[in-house]
Structure formats: C-alpha cells, structure tokens
Design a binder for these strands. Structure first.
Lengths: 170, 170
DNA sequence: TTGGAATGTCAACAACACTGACGTAAGCTG
DNA sequence: CAGCTTACGTCAGTGTTGTTGACATTCCAA
C-alpha cells in the first residue's frame, strides 16, 4: 500500500483522516471486516448445533479458566439469562464444567473439559489463521495502528477489561 | 502507548506481531471494539421500533441512492426474505422510497425520503463521532494501519465491494 | 435471625437471521 | 411467439440470540 505512511504531505497536524468521508470509510471497513472476522468460525459452528454465542463463551472460558458466570457476563455484555442458555447446552454436551465455588457457594466456576478445549482450538485456529494472514499482509506497523484505533473505539469499561485480559495473557 | 511504533527493536522482518498471543489480542480487540462501534446507534434505535438491520439498510441506501434490492442484498449478505422484512417497515414508515426501474421494470431503486435522511444523519452522526474520537486519539498513522488490517481481513468479494464504495464516495 | 443483595435458573417473548416454496412481472433467447 | 431466466415480493416454518419477569439459593450485615 503506497499511501500507507503519511506520504501525502500531512505534517502531523493535518486532519485529512478526520473528514466525514474518511470516517464513513472507517465505518464501512469495520462492517465488512467484522463479517470476515466471524465468517470462518461461523461456518464451523453451523455444522454443529452451536452459534456465535457459544464460540464467545468458550473463548473467554478458555482465556480465563475458573471464571465465574458473573464475570463472564460482564465481559460478554449480555443478560445472565441469555448466557445461561448457552452455558446450559455447553455443560449438557460436556464441553464445559461448572464447579460450585468453595469460598462462595453461590458462584459457579467455569472450566473447559477436554472436549471443550478441542472445540475451542478448532474455532480459534480458524479465526487466528484469518487474523494472521491479515497481519502478515499489512505488516507490523499497520498492526500497531490497528490495535490503537480499536482500543480507542471501545467503551471505557470494556477497554479496562480488554487490558486486563491482555496483561493476564502476557 | 509507548510501544506503538516499532520501538521494540523489530527491524521489519520480526514476526513478533504474529505470535498466537498477539493474534488472540487482535481477536479480542475486534470483539470489544465492535461492541463500542455499534453501541451508540443501538441505543438510539432501541428507542424507536428499529434495530441494527434497519440501520445497515439505511446506511447503504444513503451511501448509494438508487441502488437496487439485489445490489443491497449482495452488500449486506443476508437473504432477500430477511432484507424484505426490514425494507417493508422502512417503506411503510415513509423512510425509504422504492421506485420501479425505468430501463428494467423488474428492478426497484431505493431512495431515502427526507425523513429517512434525517434518521440516517442521527445514526451516522453518533457513529462517526465515536470513530472520530478514536481516530483523533490514535493519530493518522494508526488510522492508516487500522484500515490496512481491516481491508486484509475482508473476504475477497466484500473487499471488492468495499473498494467500489470507497471510490464512489471519493 | 431476618431482610436484603448477589448469584444463578426457568419460562415466555421479540428481533433477525435462515430455508423452502410459490407467485408475478419483465427481460431475453431460440 | 414460447419458454427460460431474472428480479422482486410473500407466506410459512425454524433456529439462534437477545430481552424481561419470576423465582430459588446463598451470603452477609444490621
């Protein structure tokens, strides 16, 4: 991409990238890219009886094993009833294990079973492959910018949660 | 972000940005950022009887006035039954006008009415404001990288459509 | 110990996607 | 012109994922 690195003469204070047209292109880029982002896992999930919500749950349980339902709720941003339906099927199907909390028996701590780990791997392999290809094509500096913009686009509380996960996974 | 611009010593051929952990962070960044991306319009739409699907339709009709149903279908990537449900309510409510094609009378060309333009403006103002803030915070180079990565993440046919829109809106 | 808060479950409903089938009007082709 | 295809609309049925409302259990603090 030749126009990548400020070759057009903005000296650092130019606001060309903030025109309505540029912003609209950014919006459409998000829309189309997100479709690509979810396409591969969606294809896989469609063959099973699962959907995108199952993927999200499995992903974050994998990322933070032993997390409570409440914590997962905050990260996913759905109602507990909605999450519960998903968790119920995952537990019934033996992909997720729910253990009653020791300190607080109201809490349920969530873990992936072996089978759950296997599904997570299949899904995230597919999604990572897409991300890897995009990263490789765009290059390290673009990746850095990509993440900066995305981070700035998050709601502040989600941004906090995102950074927390980032540190945890260092 | 101190680590923003390749300060960590990768010389251009380092693949640190392709580690599984980096990819996973990219995936989570997409997830959280998309939530922020849709949050403001969703709030507005919730107060009316409309949803995200209506927003998408209105956006792309605004972007390409006179577009046909078939074209919109290809861009949105949904079935005609699904689009039709949305379009029907928008037409009934007087936000969208559907005109029979002159050259080909089978086609319906879609336009926003004044009222439709007004709604589109409210929604896109909210969304653009979020995008503007993110762009400003991240800076022009980051924005360039952001768009490069997103473009690389799209399916090839969507990428074509995205570029077409981009050129049209020059 | 009792009342409120936190945690999680069950039931019913709405939005929005899907498939499949069908109908109509218009264009195209042999 | 006859027959096939295209573009669009619609009806019916289904699945996923979100919502609210009601309720049980557990913890904690007044």
């Amino acid at each position: 991409m030749a126009e990548g690195r400020g070759a057009q003469g903005y000296g650092g204070e130019s606001l060309l990238f903030l025109t309505d047209e540029q912003l609209r292109q950014g919006i459409e880029a998000m829309f189309f890219a997100y479709r690509g982002f979810t396409a591969d896992p969606d294809r896989i999930l469609a063959e099973m009886a699962y959907g995108r919500a199952h993927h999200r749950a499995v992903h974050f349980i994998s990322r933070a094993p032993g997390t409570t339902v409440n914590n997962l709720l905050a990260i996913l941003g759905v109602t507990k009833q909605s999450l519960n339906r998903v968790l119920r099927t995952l537990i019934q199907d033996g992909l997720v294990e729910s253990r009653v909390g020791k300190a607080d028996k109201r809490e349920r701590h969530l873990f992936l079973t072996e089978e759950g780990v296997a599904l997570e791997r299949i899904l995230s392999d597919a999604q990572r492959e897409r991300m890897r290809a995009a990263f490789r094509e765009a290059g390290p500096e673009a990746v850095s910018g990509f993440r900066q913009v995305l981070e700035a686009m998050m709601d502040t509380d989600l941004r906090r949660k995102y950074k927390k996960l980032k540190e945890a996974g260092s």
